[in-house]
Each structure stands twice: as structure tokens, then as C-alpha cells.
Amino acid sequence: MEWLNEPSNWSHSDQRIIVTTAPKTDFWRMTHYGFIRDSGHFYFDQVSTDFVVDVQIKGNYKDLYDQAGIMIRADEKHWIKTGIEYVDGVQNLSAVVTHNYSDWSFTPLLNPPNIFQLRVERCQEAIHIAYLDEYDRYVPFRMAYFPVKQDIQVGMMCASPQGNGYEVIFDDYKLTKKAIGNDEY
């Protein structure tokens, strides 16, 4: 795995990665705010197949828009980030889909789990985002279009757009590659 915007403070052991985000980091393109940010932290693998990626996330979110989750990326203009985003003191399940311009969908987690389990699956041009609920069932959150491209980057993402940084822990990251068009994993 390799970093885009490697944080100055991070460590890993076995199945755990701990990151302290740098201040004023984010991924965003144009919509509503008019700016482009490509400064968030992204630890990724190159993938040329369909896949399923799972990770457990625990963050000490404290400032507006603190975020952590999974990202897939073709280039700086085509990417998806999804996971927790902290807004007005509430953890939100969030997804930003970017094709030149970013969109943002989110829903508040009124009883957020201590550890948030996230799954992203690529089936050709479709990206399926789901989270594990309190009954240990994966609940679909969003399906989004992502262009079929041979090589894309997939991995863990975190950022602190407004704050001075925070600590996030990623546990049990698992990337399972699948044959293109194969729904079995």
C-alpha cells in the first residue's frame, strides 16, 4: 500500500492503522464552495478488478467535517469517499461522489456505534456502499456510478477540513478482489 498525502503521524501493526490527521486537509471539488481540495490522507492499493473492501473505523471526531472511511479513486477528478463525517456534533454516514464536481449525501447516526463497520463493493461501473447495523446486518446506504477503468486506487481515507487534526483508528482492513462481473466473494 502507498500514501497520497502521507500524514506526519501514523503507525501500523498487524491489522491496525492509527492516523493523526493534519489540520486543514480535505477532498472536495467545486460544488457549492467553489474550491478544490486534494489534501486529505489516503492509504491505498491499486486494483484492476471488481472488489469488496471492509474496515472498522473508530475516530475521536471533534471538529466540523472531521472524516474517516474508504475511498476509491481513478484520478483527482474522479473519486468516491464514504464513511463518517462529523457535522454539528453528530456523526453522519456520508458519501461524496466526484466526477469533476463533488456531490454529498449524508444521514445522521443518532446512536453511532463505538466502532463503525463499513463495506464498499465494486461491480463493474457500480459502487455499493453499506454499513453494519446493530443487528450485524449490512444495510445499503448508496449505490453510485464509477467509470470502469482498469486501475483504480482503493483504501482508507481521513481528513480534518476545519480542525487541527484528530486521531482515527482503522481495524481489520480487508480487500477481496473479484473477477470482473462475478458477484460471488
Results as ranks from 00 to 15, higher is better:
48 S>L: 00
2 E>F: 01
171 D>G: 06
155 G>T: 06
136 D>K: 12
73 R>N: 05
161 P>Q: 11
71 M>A: 07
115 I>Q: 13
90 V>P: 01
167 E>V: 10
19 V>K: 04
94 S>Q: 03
7 P>M: 02
155 G>N: 09
166 Y>I: 05
152 I>F: 03
146 F>V: 02
55 V>R: 03
12 H>G: 12
70 I>Y: 04
183 D>L: 10
21 T>K: 07
2 E>L: 03
156 M>T: 13
70 I>Q: 03
94 S>G: 05
110 L>P: 06
103 D>M: 05
128 H>M: 04
156 M>V: 13
172 D>T: 05
159 A>Q: 12
105 S>V: 12
135 Y>N: 14
44 F>N: 15
130 A>V: 00
144 A>M: 10
58 K>H: 14
77 K>W: 05
90 V>C: 13
23 P>Y: 06
23 P>W: 03
145 Y>V: 04
81 K>P: 07
22 A>Q: 15
21 T>R: 08
16 R>D: 14
185 Y>H: 12
166 Y>K: 09
75 D>G: 06
135 Y>M: 04
170 F>P: 00
86 Y>H: 14
107 T>G: 11
37 R>G: 03
6 E>L: 03
3 W>D: 12
137 R>T: 11
172 D>I: 01
48 S>Q: 15
154 V>W: 04
160 S>M: 09
11 S>Y: 07
165 G>P: 08
174 K>P: 01
15 Q>P: 00
34 G>Y: 09
111 N>G: 04
51 F>E: 06
77 K>V: 05
